[in-house]
């Protein structure tokens, strides 16, 4: 399944509390979306979230259902720096 980095601008800071998390994950599952990891800026207003998802539409849909903004979706693949070591 493709991986995507989703950029979110969060004017009021990181919105998901421990209580919300279960619901968020459940709603993701309904669309086949897996939230792998997020990097959040120190002030909490920007997040870069890594997802596995069938389509960008699935990410937007779960974003809407979870009340999370979606500012940019980029499809990505993983490059490991040590990969280059082996090449040499």
């Amino acid at each position: 399944m493709p991986r995507y980095i989703v950029e979110r601008i969060l004017e009021d800071g990181w919105p998901i509390s421990g209580d919300d998390c279960r619901g968020v994950l459940q709603r993701n599952t309904d669309e086949g979306v897996t939230w792998i990891q997020s990097y959040v800026s120190e002030d909490g207003t920007t997040a870069f979230c890594l997802y596995e998802a069938p389509t960008p539409e699935a990410i937007r849909k779960t974003g809407a259902r979870n009340a999370l903004p979606v500012d940019r979706i980029t499809q990505v693949r993983v490059l490991d720096p040590y990969f280059y070591e082996e090449d040499r």
Partner: peptide, 13 residues
């Protein structure tokens, strides 16, 4: 339809 949605939203693919 899906291609247009992606192109308009700036989504990949």
């Amino acid at each position: 339809v899906i291609a247009l949605l992606r192109a308009r939203r700036g989504d990949p693919g």
